[in-house]
Amino acid sequence: MTTANFPLPIPNLDNQVFWDNCREHRLVLRRCNDCQESFHPPKPTCPLCSSENLEWVASEGKGKVYTYTITRQPVNPAFRERLPWGIVDVELTEGVHMISNLVDLDPEQIEIGMDVEVVFERVSEEITLPKFRAV
């Protein structure tokens, strides 16, 4: 429940399937059947070619830390109990980027290029967040 004070996702018709799969501990991506590119976050059309011919595909759930930052001041009440707070941008093997947090790791140990894999953190009955851990 570590993210209880951060805003929780409010699923909509464009991304409900993503959140439904997270609840089942599956990471899925939107993939375009016309240009063959995967993308994230889910949208109703491909951000590269505008195609509506999309499918949901399973992600391998593996990637590398592309960049990160560590928040060290309680700029907002949600941070008060959880500093220092690490935020990572993970580049998945499918080429898409995902903002997330690393679990079971001191934020001071985060490095660019670190290999990570997805884990799932249940934060409410409806919402399970994909997070990552170092491998």
């Binding site: 993210t3 951060f6 805003p7 929780l8 996702p9 409010i10 699923p11 991304n15 994230h40 976050p41 592309y66 960049t67 990160y68 930052t69 928040t71 700029v75 907002n76 949600a78 941070f79 959880r82 707070w85 935020i87 941008d89 995902m98 903002i99 997330s100 947090n101 660019i112 934060v123 919402i127 967040l129």
Partner: peptide, 21 residues
């Protein structure tokens, strides 16, 4: 929905992510 639940809430954090890279 894909950033704020992770604590990415203010523009300075995004600027930090970008310059770190």
């Amino acid at each position: 929905a894909f950033t704020e639940p992770y604590g990415l809430l203010v523009p300075g954090q995004s600027s930090a992510l970008r310059i770190r890279r």
